[in-house]
Design a protein around this nucleic acid. Structure first.
Lengths: 155, 155
DNA sequence: TTTATTATTTAGAATCATTCTTAACTGGTA
DNA sequence: TACCAGTTAAGAATGATTCTAAATAATAAA
């Protein structure tokens, strides 16, 4: 069966890049840490375990390449560090984030909630939307007064 | 009549900070450059004209202070530089941005388009929203195939 | 007023994330 | 074999931001 790695390899080849061992190791780390919002440094430390000879600059270059190919999303929560998320396969857009001001947790919303808003923006502001970034800042269900009350699973 | 500067002064005093000459000069620059998305460096260069003795660190500290008091919004378009916008008086939220991938222009949407979406998020993800950041990436009306066609004035 | 206290500032050093440079290495190909 | 484009590691360089130390200004107390 074709794995996610195989498909990423194809995407790279289609853009005439190779899936070198360093790149593969980096992608494996991202696959093992979906939803973890790793920084380049985080990825570097993790990938060193499975590919000790890799350099930080290579990790940066790989993440940049994957970002260009829209395999990963580079996000920025304003703390001065870029974070990298594997994009859902087939997803056309960034997913959204919920950042808790209390505990710092970052949760994800995979569902695209912006269809209606985008229709309005495209029409009213005459702007062709290619992508979006939406982050909510607030208090997560874990830190709530109303007590821990896990939300329904993301639809 | 009470000016915007006067009101900002009051806000500072309420939080037991002073509106020093350096801070006032910085605020004046921000007032003269609304919608310009200035970086700290930009502000520094501009403010030096009216207060030559000011230091870059002071500009950073002032912008940080104003951000804490929600007088300015610190935004980040992913180019590694923080930008600072005076928040609309009385606005509870960040305004939204349209970033053109073609020409790099950044337009603003003052109107809050997210009320419905926020209601959904608060309920479904059990998350108390305090603020949000929404940026659309795409092609602006100036760069469009359909030709320059300025959007209606922001409602 | 003088003195003590505190907040604020400047200048420049320090830090931290990120990118660049150089030389070495790889795989494919003529 | 020699060549060539792509890729890499190591460390230097860059650039934004923050910290440090000493100076200054404002405020309160005596």
């Amino acid at each position: 069966m074709e794995t996610r790695i195989d498909r990423i390899k194809k995407q790279l080849h289609a853009a005439s890049y190779k899936l070198t061992p360093q790149r593969e190791a980096t992608v494996r780390i991202l696959l093992d840490h979906e939803e973890d919002h790793l920084s380049a440094e985080d990825v570097y430390l993790l990938v060193k375990d499975i590919a000790p000879e890799i350099g930080l600059a290579t990790v940066y270059r790989t993440l940049e390449l994957l970002t260009e190919l829209k395999i990963v999303d580079k996000i920025n929560f304003g703390d001065g560090v870029s974070r990298y998320d594997l994009r859902q396969e087939g997803a056309a857009h960034f997913h959204h984030h919920l950042v808790c001001l209390e505990c710092g947790a970052v949760d994800e919303i995979q569902e695209d909630l912006l269809e209606d808003v985008e229709a309005v923006v495209e029409k009213r502001w005459n702007f062709q939307i290619k992508d979006h970034r939406l982050t909510f800042h607030g208090i997560c269900w874990r830190c709530h007064d109303s007590g821990p009350n896990k939300p329904e699973k993301d639809a």
